[in-house]
């Protein structure tokens, strides 16, 4: 089955480059140059994934996200400019799945696309209860964490934080989402607590906490739990 990608990009040169790269990979591509065009296309084309540039002339993308929300499970990958963090974070909080910062390589784009598609529909699917990556195994139901087969003792908050990341494995989870879900709605400004507990979690689960292999920092945005080594294709087009 050919996967359908809805590409929302108002810059013609970048749009054409991305479209051609996606076509070469075997995706079917629908392109829209504005949010209104994107909403119309999304209603008819039933895309498997939406690639949304945040710098569109006719809005900030929230409305498109809301209309896609009615067909929950369609991953939305944001394309953002550096210094556009506020809008990007707002959309990630509103349910977008991941973001790519311009400029990016085609290799990075394709890697993120594959991750988003692999996790497509997980928000609707029965909750993930077991997760494994290399030496790390997490059983959410039993509240058990094993590293190299040996049990790791986590405090309730550390476990809560890890569990929240496991439920969105491979995707970026914003500071606000983590604080709201683990600490509670009144604590969304408590970034300092998040830093301290993430430090503790890394000290217990990472061989080299200053160079984490799984619990990655997305600076200014949040955290991402990844499955061991990053996708080798991600660096393909880089120098």
């Amino acid at each position: 089955m050919t996967l359908q990608v809805l590409l929302v990009e108002d810059d013609t040169a970048l749009g054409n480059t991305l479209r051609d790269a996606l076509l070469v990979e075997g995706y079917a591509v629908h392109t829209a140059a504005s949010l209104s065009e994107a909403r119309a296309l999304a209603a008819h084309a039933a895309p498997d994934l939406v690639l949304l540039d945040l710098g569109l002339p006719d809005g900030d993308g929230e409305a498109l996200l809301a209309s896609l929300g009615q067909r929950a499970g369609t991953p939305v990958l944001l394309i953002s400019a550096r210094h556009g963090e506020q809008q990007k974070i707002a959309l990630l909080d509103a349910g977008a799945d991941d973001d790519l910062v311009k400029p990016f390589s085609v290799g990075e784009l394709l890697a993120r696309l594959r991750v988003a598609l692999r996790h497509r529909g997980t928000r609707l699917a029965p909750a993930v209860t077991r997760w494994r990556s290399g030496p790390l195994a997490v059983d959410l139901a039993a509240r058990r964490v094993l590293l190299d087969g040996a049990p790791v003792h986590l405090t309730p908050t550390e476990f809560g934080l890890l569990a929240r990341l496991v439920r969105s494995a491979c995707q970026v989870v914003t500071h606000r989402q983590l604080l709201a879900d683990v600490w509670g709605a009144d604590f969304t400004a408590h970034t300092h607590d998040l830093r301290l507990y993430m430090g503790q979690l890394r000290a217990k689960l990472e061989a080299e906490p200053a160079e984490p292999q799984r619990l990655l920092t997305e600076p200014g945005v949040g955290y991402r739990l990844v499955e061991g080594e990053p996708d080798p294709d991600a660096g393909l087009m880089r120098s």
């Binding site: 970034t191 830093r195 301290l196 430090g199 890394r202 906490p209 200053a210 160079e211 990655l216 920092t217």
Partner: peptide, 20 residues
């Protein structure tokens, strides 16, 4: 845009990019 940050995380993000 100030927030509370851990030096370990900042260094980790820089190292990751540099290694790539």
């Amino acid at each position: 845009r100030r927030d509370w940050e851990s030096a370990e995380e900042l260094v980790g993000a820089v190292l990751r990019r540099a290694r790539q």
